[in-house]
């Protein structure tokens, strides 16, 4: 190699390093901006969420934190007059509803993903993938309108058919169905990516050892993709926990007591924040930030525990 070409390469390296530095700075700035929004939002909700517990709320008195977290009635006494707010029952209902909807959306979502990635003929897989991606991008209000117009009617007719009078279909069942519909596309598309990225040598090895297609799909491919599938479930749970608009149209706005009766009305932290939000003032408005704060803590704890489980489940043989 001549001295000249070495010099040229050195110069090249120097200029590409400058580009590297510049790119790094741009990425850092982008990361800082997005991260700072999270801190800004979390900070404001944190600050405003604590106000009802610290100030005397324009003469109504401090809200008791312990009562707030454990009570099974949203508000004892009159709105704008009482400070006896409580979200204990809403926390339990929220977790209950999320779990039930995951029980539906997880198996359906993962099996759909497996079908698209491994079983379906190419053209059908392509169509289905588009359908799922479209479903995933449908705004929640549309799911809500579908829920209020169709699912409520189905649940109402179903309960009448089994001889039980539901509250016009407004129920845990309707809420769970709407949430399942909303989370299936999320779980499907992320699981499908995880399934497709399983190393084909694993699949070929399994088939070569005499395992059938179905055995391979369930025992090898799903097992190998479980980390990615778990991520799909975590995102699905996140969407369920945080959904307000669609849920508020089918839940029925329960004001007290946890109900595990599938055909009884229910409420979640998000629906409580949304109801009357546009009309209310004073403590009744401020307390919604506190509910938001509780919701953020619930989501954080759920995510941390799901991630801990995910780490224990572990990842095997998944391409980067």
């Amino acid at each position: 190699m001549s001295d000249q070409s070495i010099a040229a390469r050195m110069k090249n390296t120097a200029s590409s390093r400058r580009v590297d530095h510049l790119a790094k700075a741009v990425f850092l700035a982008a990361a800082l901006i997005s991260a700072s929004f999270i801190f800004l939002i979390a900070g404001i909700v944190l600050f405003r969420g604590f106000i009802p517990f610290l100030s005397d709320n324009g003469g109504l008195g401090r809200v008791d934190l312990f009562h707030f977290l454990t009570a099974d009635v949203w508000l004892i006494g009159q709105t704008f007059v009482s400070n006896l707010y409580g979200v204990g029952y809403l926390i339990l209902s929220t977790l209950f509803i999320t779990t039930l909807s995951l029980l539906i959306s997880f198996p359906v979502g993962v099996l759909t993903a497996l079908f698209i990635a491994k079983v379906a003929p190419k053209p059908l897989a392509k169509v289905l993938r588009t359908v799922i991606e479209t479903l995933a991008s449908i705004p929640s209000i549309v799911f809500g309108l579908f829920g209020a117009g169709v699912i409520l009617k189905l649940v109402y007719d179903f309960s009448m058919a089994i001889g039980y009078q539901s509250k016009g279909g407004n129920s845990i069942l309707a809420t769970v169905l709407v949430l399942a519909l909303m989370t299936i596309p999320t779980i499907t598309s992320i699981s499908e990516v995880a399934i497709r990225s399983v190393d084909t040598t694993l699949e070929h090895g399994s088939l070569a050892l005499g395992a059938s297609k179905t055995q391979t799909n369930f025992k090898v491919i799903l097992a190998a993709a479980k980390s990615g599938i778990f991520t799909a479930a975590i995102l699905g749970v996140g969407r369920s926990l945080g959904e307000a608009t669609a849920v508020s149209l089918v839940a029925g706005g329960r004001r007290s007591g946890v109900s595990f009766d599938l055909l009884d009305t229910t409420g979640t932290l998000t629906t409580m924040m949304l109801e009357g939000l546009k009309e209310t003032t004073g403590l009744d408005y401020d307390i919604r930030f506190s509910v938001g704060l509780v919701l953020m803590v619930v989501i954080l704890i759920t995510n941390l525990s799901l991630n801990a489980i995910k780490r224990r489940v572990g990842a095997v043989h998944v391409k980067a």
């Binding site: 009635v73 949203w74 508000l75 004892i76 006494g77 009159q78 709105t79 704008f80 007059v81 209020a148 509250k167 016009g168 407004n170 149209l249 029925g252 706005g253 329960r254 004001r255 007290s256 009884d264 009305t265 109801e275």
Partner: peptide, 18 residues
């Protein structure tokens, strides 16, 4: 007017359209 506890048990809360 502003108190849910005096209402009949099992009422359902909806907005006008609801």
């Amino acid at each position: 007017e502003t108190d849910d506890s005096v209402l009949v048990d099992g009422f359902i809360i909806k907005d006008n359209t609801g």
